[in-house]
């Protein structure tokens, strides 16, 4: 058992969990986007789960920190909040904010964090940079919206976990990075129709199953319902 102090409260944690998980389990909310429970090697790419630790210079991504005995952690200092706001604003500045028409409306990770950090969804002081909209995933079952995607990588993580031959991957580089797919495998041989884990985990509904022509435009499929359970972690 490890004893540490988070925001002035003494907490006992089990070894083997990272600091972000310990915080969340003890009802200390730390904004985060790319982390998922059970990740052996969190990518720490969203730069949101920052905390300060006594004796450590600057802020650190809590998902990459193993709690130590006697650790003193601050999750809500001014420096932390400022960095989290900047990180979120940068994400929002490259995200097509169209909540009313979005399947993730009201359970969207960005909305939740914006509310928590008191950041308006429309970022005024940053240029709004949208990824090119003519990119096509060219997947027989899945549809992908690069303008919404925040590149958290969760879809790729779940795909890699569930499939021996992952279907999704990051493609291209830098600002042009997108979720990519390639292959001429017929849809019936792809695991996607029965899996859809990627669309279930997507925090912003950027990847979703193609609608059968007949389906009505606003029917939350099974994937959407699973999202409710996942979003809570």
């Amino acid at each position: 058992m490890i004893q540490l102090t988070i925001d002035g409260t003494k907490i006992v944690a089990q070894p083997g969990k990272n600091l972000l998980q310990v915080c969340l389990e003890n009802d200390v909310y730390v904004p985060h986007l790319c982390h998922m429970e059970g990740m052996e090697d969190p990518p720490a790419s969203c730069r949101l789960c920052l905390v300060e630790i006594e004796g450590v210079n600057g802020t650190v991504a809590s998902c990459r920190i193993a709690p130590r005995d006697g650790m003193v952690v601050t999750t809500q200092s001014q420096a932390v909040r400022q960095l989290q706001r900047s990180a979120l604003q940068l994400l929002l500045s490259a995200h097509r904010v169209d909540c009313r028409n979005c399947a993730s409306n009201k359970r969207c990770a960005l909305q939740q964090m914006a509310k928590f950090l008191k950041v308006p969804l429309k970022v005024k002081h940053l240029d709004h940079l949208l990824d090119e909209t003519d990119y096509q995933l060219n997947h027989p079952v899945l549809e992908y919206d690069p303008g919404k995607c925040v590149l958290c990588g969760k879809c790729i993580y779940v795909c890699t976990r569930q499939q021996a031959h992952p279907v999704l991957t990051f493609a291209r580089r830098g600002f042009e990075t997108v979720i990519g797919f390639m292959g001429s495998t017929p849809p019936s041989e792809l695991p996607c129709l029965d899996c859809l884990a990627c669309s279930a985990i997507c925090p912003v509904s950027a990847i979703y199953p193609k609608k059968p022509e007949a389906a009505s435009s606003h029917s939350p499929g099974p994937a959407d319902q699973r999202l409710n359970g996942v979003g809570k972690q």
Binding site: L168, T169, F170, A171, R173, G180, F181, M182, G183
Partner: peptide, 20 residues
């Protein structure tokens, strides 16, 4: 896709690397 088949990895992975 042929390369992917030879290395027993998914074509997507090959495309991901190549497009980088």
């Amino acid at each position: 896709e042929m390369v992917a088949g030879h290395l027993d990895i998914s074509p997507s992975e090959v495309y991901g690397v190549a497009s980088f």
